[in-house]
Design a binder for these strands. Sequence first.
DNA 1: ATCCGATGGCTCC
DNA 2: TGGAGCCCCTCGGA
Length: 563
Amino acid sequence: MAPQTRRMAFPQVVIERDTDSERSSSDDEDDFDQEENGPQSESEAEGEVTENGSRGKNEEDMDSKEQRKAPITISLKKVCKVCKKPGHEAGFKGATYIDCPMKPCFLCKMPGHTTMTCPHRVATQYGVVPAPQRNTHNALEYVFQRQLRTRLPPIKPAYVIPDRVCCAVIRYHSRRVTCLEFHPTKNNILLSGDKKGQVGVWDFDKVHEKMVYTNIHTCIVNNMRFNPSNDGMVYAASSDGTISCTDMETGISSSLMNLNPDGWQGPSSWRMLYGMDVNSEKNVVLVADNFGFLYMVDMRSNNKSGEAVLIHKKGSKVVGLHCNPLHPELLLSCGNDHFARIWDMRQLKAGSSLGDLLHKRVVNCAYFSPLSGSKILTTSQDNRLRVWDCIFGNLDSPSREIVHSHDFNRHLTPFRAEWDPKDPSESLAVIGRYISENYNGAALHPIDFIDISTGQLVAEVMDPNITTISPVNKLHPRDDILATGSSRSLFIWKPKEKSEVVEQKDEGKIIICGSTEKKFKRKFGDGSDDSGGDDDGFKSKGKNFKLTKSRSKSAHCPRKVKR
DNA sequence: ATCCGATGGCTCC
DNA sequence: TGGAGCCCCTCGGA
């Protein structure tokens, strides 16, 4: 197979097909056949495995006869760890993952090919299902076209992609990061929540200062929002069943609501809060739980307002809530019942949704577009982003489906495609990628920038030192900055040219937190490892860590991935 | 180096 | 409807 290049605008990274993969079958023969009796056919090998697997009552007799005849030869023929059949083997060959050919494509879920040859991987816009031509000219759509569409400039501006890590805190959290939120007015403050319930307040202009509040929640922080009338206060919804309201300066926190006042009575009664948003027009915090219910808390009185409303299938998790930025009466919810739903806040009762957007799998998140609020973008575990171009039009099917790898659901924070809040054309979204690519010998998981109006991959950003998956990403509301939560670490990305011109005092710093500092010092290179000669040194208060820039074609990766 | 476990959703019965 | 068992690229700690 000829090497294939991925179609992309920026950065230019040539993906070389790992030649190991192409000779994998011959490798199998060479590496795994331990027989001394010469070559053996596939069927014989299979028979041998079967025999080993079904050793019955006569096994001792057979063994003794064979012992007398000839020395025992044990076949070490390996079987595929996925389908348990011999002849092929799924797993990493170097930094390239070889799929089991017996399974449907891991990326697009269609049978007949593997991820390696999936057309969506070779050219990502291949899988975009275009918007159907509809003739639905209703009055609402007419109003929308006249009043709202005119606010959007007809020509898309050039995208600015933050693609260089300018600072990072390694192991800032003690468990994996679950959510991020930029401060609404202070440009350099990033909030992060983790699986343990801790909330970090990171000033990425003062990288060395670590501030993590540990007493706010007892388990997963699922969503955070700032109080729109007091940006020193932040609300957080947690799987401990509480909404917290915390003063960012002091860390003093109060609980607005507790769904488990009697403590742990078993998993069937424990309520967890997932989706959350604030509606500043109506002065309420909206939260939803793992049993399908929506709750509202008045922000002025801090009292629960009204009764809980069943908005998704009873007993299913409601993972996302989003208030429309322009129409305060519109609410969008999504959950594990495979639906995203549009609601009228004035008529909130079970079964009265304005629209039900069906997905094939769990919906990780659903967001209105950030400026006009007239589009919807959802991330579903069926490896597809879905776009509805106009919420006032026909909602029966999405305008576009974009195949994208983000379906791993266990042990990882769910991936969420996030709008770029600065993009006036409302077409740029960012989302981490689950599947890895072989970038010059390292298996890296890029963060993708996708033009959701075309399905085209605008950019994939990665850094050779970030070998973990980055499911949590958020774009800055005003600056060209991307924040990433990857495992327990936080990263701040800026555009290359910009960060080279505007050097801030702590720019380019990496701080390693926690008890495993020595281990990470080795990993990131303190002179003792073979990380190559031309890395950029990042000096930070008496320590000297190295972090290589994201490179384009000449990218090299100091740390080979061993699997 | 290797193993293990925390975990969530899905399918099958 | 509910429980058992399964699962395909994790990640970090013992």
